[in-house]
Write a protein that binds this DNA or RNA. Structure first.
Lengths: 118, 118
DNA sequence: CGTTTGGTTAAGCATATGCCTAACTATCAG
DNA sequence: CTGATAGTTAGGCATATGCTTAACCAAACG
């Protein structure tokens, strides 16, 4: 639960780029070599490599070299950290609405009239 | 379903910063004025304003000015786009594992030996 | 061997990001 | 009106990001 802040930074930052998301989407349908990830993208190979670096640093993708071809694949559970954070937010949000609901209900019977809502 | 790519860019980019996530976390517990969002953060007010701008541009936060105080609040459903994308990825991933499982099962009985996996 | 193929390294450049300070506006309190 | 409070605008600066081209390396192919 502690200070995973830099991990979330890297994770969300990695996902904040269309090229990187495209690669990740491709990989979620199965492993692929670098050149296949590069093919649909309108950029040079070195750029693609940099993006792969970012995805790996974020723990989203793993890659291994066999012979001269580097095969990339999804790191399973890679997105769970992001998911957890989002769910935690939703839960806080809903919890707050519940408290608000409770409060409004106590207002209904026995109006005590010295409160404000937002 | 189409071309929400720039939206996802803005969304994930907005979440990729610890200060912005901190603000969003605070707001998911209820609305707050700018100065309250700023208090725990180690930076100047103008910087905070910029972060709020990013959060608003991403559709994560809304803000309105009453008198001289600007009150910020969560945009409900703000995270749903991110959630959708993540879920879609997981689904593709699982679907792929299913296909792989099917394939392995057909291999078990009646070995036909001319296929490759990955 | 020599060549193609797949990837990598290095260096450089343009733009974006994140932060700051200083100056300014607008509201509220006395 | 005067001063304090809340926020805003403007300008500038340092670093990060995303991309490029030009070499370079190493496995495969003929």
């Amino acid at each position: 639960m502690l200070n995973q802040t830099p991990d979330l930074d890297r994770l969300f930052h990695a996902l904040a780029d269309p090229a990187r998301r495209a690669m990740f989407e491709r990989l979620s349908r199965g492993p692929a070599p670098v050149s296949e990830l590069a093919r649909p993208l309108p950029m040079s190979l070195p750029s693609v490599m940099q993006h792969i670096g970012v995805l790996e640093a974020a723990g989203l993708v793993r890659s291994e070299k066999f012979g001269r071809v580097r095969t990339c694949s999804i790191e399973p559970g890679a997105l769970s950290l992001a998911e957890q954070w989002i769910n935690a937010r939703r839960q806080e949000w809903e919890c707050r609405l519940d408290r608000l609901g409770e409060y409004l209900k106590t207002m209904e019977n026995g109006e005590d009239d010295n409160g404000r809502v937002d």
